[in-house]
Simulated scan of single mutants.
Amino acid sequence: MKKDSQWKTKNKIKVLSLLLTVSVIIGAGCSNGSQSETVELNPRSIKTEMIKKQKIGAPIEQVAEVKAGTTLDVVAKANGEVVNVLKKRGEYVEKGDVLFIIDSKQAEIVRRKSEVALQSAQETLKKAEDDQAMNHKNLLDEVTRAENALQNAKQDYNKLRNDFDSGLSTQHMIDQLKQSVENAEMNLKSAQNKLSANDNSNSLASYKTQLEAAS
């Protein structure tokens, strides 16, 4: 029985080897053929859809505190107690936006004092201008009187010289009138110098400076 089983096994191995050899020969013959067959494939239908927006999923959110790389200090132009804050930390602001409100009581007092000082400076300057105008008028009148006095003194002197030629006056009288003419000329020159000094003086400069400071 054992020999019969071994014989059957050997015969199976031979049959398998023969079949393998035949398969190799057939495959070689097919590959060495002069013509090759073309296999046509039938087209397959493709399903298409219109392009449209579609949410893929819920957006990812993350809570964090963002800090600026550059920070600037905002300096108020006036001191005081903050009574109202209009902008919170992190809010966007633009140039000219009011960030907070300061108690204005002290500022109102300072402004009122400045208004009083300004009004006082204006009145002082106006009075100085009026005084200068009045001085100009008085000095101009003084020049006019000095001119008239000199003209009268010259007329009297000329008349007295004519009388002297006629024997109606003395040399002493002529000398006196000549001195009067010289005095009148000196008075006129003095009045003219005063008028010129008044007009060319810069006496209003200090008052104008005070007005500018108050403004």
Results as ranks from 00 to 15, higher is better:
residue 3 K to R: 10
residue 7 W to G: 10
residue 9 T to I: 11
residue 9 T to S: 15
residue 9 T to N: 09
residue 10 K to D: 09
residue 13 I to G: 11
residue 28 A to G: 11
residue 34 S to D: 13
residue 43 P to R: 00
residue 44 R to I: 15
residue 45 S to L: 12
residue 47 K to G: 06
residue 49 E to R: 12
residue 49 E to M: 07
residue 51 I to N: 10
residue 53 K to Q: 13
residue 55 K to V: 07
residue 58 A to E: 15
residue 61 E to P: 04
residue 61 E to V: 12
residue 63 V to D: 10
residue 68 A to R: 01
residue 69 G to N: 12
residue 77 K to L: 08
residue 78 A to M: 06
residue 78 A to P: 04
residue 78 A to S: 11
residue 79 N to L: 00
residue 81 E to M: 01
residue 83 V to L: 02
residue 90 G to Q: 09
residue 93 V to Y: 06
residue 96 G to P: 01
residue 100 F to L: 13
residue 104 S to E: 05
residue 105 K to S: 04
residue 107 A to C: 00
residue 108 E to S: 06
residue 115 E to G: 06
residue 115 E to T: 11
residue 120 S to Q: 03
residue 120 S to R: 05
residue 121 A to S: 03
residue 123 E to I: 09
residue 130 D to V: 11
residue 134 M to L: 14
residue 140 L to C: 09
residue 144 T to V: 05
residue 150 L to N: 06
residue 150 L to E: 09
residue 153 A to W: 00
residue 154 K to C: 06
residue 157 Y to I: 08
residue 159 K to D: 12
residue 161 R to S: 10
residue 162 N to A: 14
residue 164 F to H: 08
residue 169 S to G: 00
residue 170 T to G: 04
residue 170 T to I: 02
residue 180 S to N: 13
residue 180 S to L: 02
residue 183 N to T: 07
residue 185 E to K: 11
residue 188 L to C: 02
residue 189 K to C: 04
residue 192 Q to Y: 01
residue 193 N to H: 15
residue 195 L to F: 01
residue 195 L to W: 00
residue 197 A to D: 05
residue 197 A to H: 09
residue 198 N to T: 00
residue 199 D to I: 14
residue 203 S to G: 12
residue 204 L to K: 02
residue 207 Y to T: 06
residue 207 Y to Q: 12
residue 215 S to F: 14
